[in-house]
Amino acid sequence: MNSLPYHEQQDIENIKKLRELIKSLPLFCSDFFRGIEQRTSSRTRIAYAYDLNVFFHFLQEENPVIAKLSMSEITLEHIDSLTVTDMEEYMEYLKYRLNDDNRHIINKERGIMRKISSLKSFYNYYYQNESIKNNPAALVKLPKLHEKDIIRLDIDEVASLLDEVEQGDSLTLKQKTYHKKTKVRDLALLTLLLGTGIRVSECVGLNINDIDSKNNGIRIHRKGGKEVTVYFGDEVEKALSNYLNERNTIIPEAGHEDALFLSLQKKRMSVKSIENLVKKYAQLITPLKKITPHKLRSTYGTSLYRETGDIYLVADVLGHSDVNTTKKHYAALEDERRRSARNKVILREKNTKE
């Protein structure tokens, strides 16, 4: 399997994981996952499986009929018999619960909304296939979401972050020991994230031969497996070039020969390791902001929009399939641009005579 591209390896691992998750659900659920396979990614289906697992555990805990049944004994007839009240009780249950390990689980608005959206898709599938007569999930109102401020780095914070990566002055003595070994890699990685806005999963999946040094581009695989080329500027080119000189001297572990970014164990870096790397440096620069790789993506999108004013270009470069997604994230900037336009059109020249 190591000969397959990284994104295909991940898809196979996700499919294997999904099959195990489906085994823990009622038997009829396998029809739902087969039915949505062609229009969803494996990661999306895994999220559905987790959400449905929570729903069925709720029914086993709270529903007097289903509480007497094992998971395999739950049928579509039981699902068809549920009401809007059951759905509303489930929403209440989601706010706070104990999981199987007696850990406290708290869901806020967005967490509840995602789980109810999963349930709506689940019910819609069987209702549209005429497998059930009732669709109480369709009648449930989703919780009202309060808009959250988009967290991003300011221009001076971006410069300070890259300076810290390059110099490591604020790191602990132990961190400085590792920093000597990873400085060039870390600078290339963070410069790439900040200079292209690619997703952390896309960054993890990069191979050495995905870099087009001649045209300053990288080949990445977007969500759904679509292959695109993203272009970068001179700062990214310099940081990547320095790292490639170092990377070419490293002998990777078997199965990781093609990977661009390697860990100290000489294996392809994981999403988690890049998240920890970003967190380590960002906390030194802006401790009050919770900076993740996705926030670096938002930082790039903001800079690009401010420079170009082209929301469609931003959507295209970030890989948003719907420009409305982009508009939602950069609505405040759009409003700022509209306000700045108020004095751009002059109706009458001012009289300069005294």
Rank of each mutant, 00 (worst) to 15 (best):
E109Y: 00
I79H: 05
L94W: 03
M71G: 15
T83H: 07
M87I: 02
N99P: 11
K108G: 00
K95I: 02
V84L: 12
E92H: 07
I105K: 10
I74A: 05
M91F: 01
N99F: 06
Y90Q: 06
K108V: 00
E88F: 01
M87Q: 02
D100F: 01
L82P: 09
E73V: 06
N102T: 08
L98E: 12
L98R: 11
L82Q: 08
D100V: 02
E92Q: 14
T83R: 11
N99K: 05
E77C: 09
L76M: 11
L76H: 05
L82I: 13
E77W: 02
V84W: 02
K95P: 02
E88G: 01
D86F: 01
L82Y: 04
L98S: 05
K95E: 15
S81K: 11
N99H: 07
N102Y: 09
N107R: 00
K108Y: 04
E73I: 02
L76K: 05
E88Y: 02
I79P: 12
I106L: 10
I106Y: 12
E88M: 04
S81R: 13
D101L: 03
L94E: 12
E73W: 03
M71Y: 15
D80S: 10
T75E: 08
S72A: 15
N107L: 07
I79E: 06
I105D: 14
L98G: 02
